[in-house]
């Protein structure tokens, strides 16, 4: 073997890890095609795209950072309220609202990230849960600001880029959400393949060793948590803008629980899991809603129990391995 051969092999291997796989092109091609082929479903698809972004955000925290969060709705709702209040105050440009929500949620994420740095899974679950509960109670009580249980009323959103008015069928909204999702996905993809992204994986894999190779463990977690909060805030803003309504429900516990389920359905730690999970979850919800809308919660519960008792990996073994391979999850 010549001296250059291992070098070239190593280069190729590192490039290969980050290379775009055919399945990824197919995924995004199909996603883009859905806008043209399913115009009648744009309202539902828009919601799916928003939850896909929200689930992508949780994947950054859980799949890459290794933090079990039971209160991720805090950042989703915070972003929603930020965008909604800005619109209420007369600043109706959607992109401005998005930026404001991103900043607000990232700031909240940054501050609260220090609470989850240490402690067991249980402590982290309780801390994330309490943060979301505190926010929920605040939104509930500060009626003059948030509208309390009635939600934020009378939000009007201006035309996108000053040209495209949001329509009732969700055509503009879906295109808008898709583009935002795609751009943020690209950024997330770059980041998880960067040296920073690898150090976050290292911290999740073994925090003791991560420190022993000179990584400031806390900074990694603060970084990824803040970034995830920013993503969740943007997802919340998208929902607020496309429904022109913000309610307490955006901060509710079941949001966080549903989100965990979505991510787990699709698989943790390879970025596509949350997006696939959001699609499956919403499709199921839509299907069950046609049969027995009242008892949706029961079926969600049953699904969660079965998932765990039978074994997540076993249920999805085939499809998950295939999906991970196709979308390229390799160490």
């Amino acid at each position: 073997m010549s001296a250059a051969a291992p070098h070239a092999a190593a280069r190729a291997a590192l490039r290969e890890v980050a290379r775009w796989k055919p399945a990824e092109y197919a995924f995004w091609a199909a996603t883009a095609a859905s806008w043209f082929l399913l115009p009648g479903q744009h309202l539902l698809l828009n919601e799916i795209a928003i939850f896909a972004l929200f689930a992508l955000s949780l994947d950054l925290v859980l799949g890459f950072g290794g933090i079990v969060s039971l209160g991720h709705a805090a950042y989703f709702g915070f972003g929603g309220y930020a965008a909604g209040m800005l619109a209420q105050a007369g600043y109706t440009d959607p992109l401005l609202g998005l930026a404001a929500a991103a900043l607000a949620s990232a700031a909240l994420g940054f501050v609260t990230s220090f609470l989850v740095l240490r402690g067991s899974d249980l402590t982290r679950i309780m801390v994330t849960l309490s943060v979301s509960l505190v926010l929920f109670e605040l939104a509930n009580r500060l009626t003059w600001l948030t509208g309390g249980a009635d939600g934020l009323q009378g939000i009007t959103i201006g035309p996108l880029l000053g040209r495209f008015d949001f329509d009732l069928a969700g055509h503009v909204a879906y295109a808008y959400s898709l583009v935002v999702l795609f751009v943020l996905f690209l950024a997330a993809r770059r980041i998880v393949h960067s040296p920073f992204g690898w150090t976050v994986r290292a911290v999740r894999g073994n925090a003791l060793r991560a420190a022993a190779i000179g990584l400031a463990v806390d900074l990694r977690l603060v970084g990824i948590y803040t970034m995830a909060a920013l993503y969740a805030g943007i997802a919340g803003a998208l929902l607020a803008q496309s429904t022109q309504f913000v309610s307490l429900d955006m901060l509710a516990f079941h949001r966080s629980a549903d989100l965990l389920l979505m991510l787990v359905i699709g698989g943790v730690g390879y970025l596509y899991g949350g997006m696939i999970g959001a699609l499956v979850f919403k499709a199921m919800q839509n299907w069950v809603a046609d049969i027995t809308p009242e008892y949706w919660q029961f079926w969600i519960g049953l699904l969660l129990v079965l998932l765990v008792v039978i074994g997540r990996e076993r249920i999805f073994a085939g499809s998950l391995v295939l999906a991970r391979r196709a979308f390229g999850r390799r160490g």
């Binding site: 980041i191 960067s194 040296p195 290292a202």
Partner: peptide
């Protein structure tokens, strides 16, 4: 092993906060 060593070397060269360029 490659990515393990790669991230440690990146750290030593002060590139571990780089979040936009690919590892390697």
């Amino acid at each position: 092993p490659l990515t393990t060593v790669g991230l440690a070397v990146s750290r030593r060269l002060g590139l571990d906060r780089q979040f936009w360029r690919r590892l390697g």
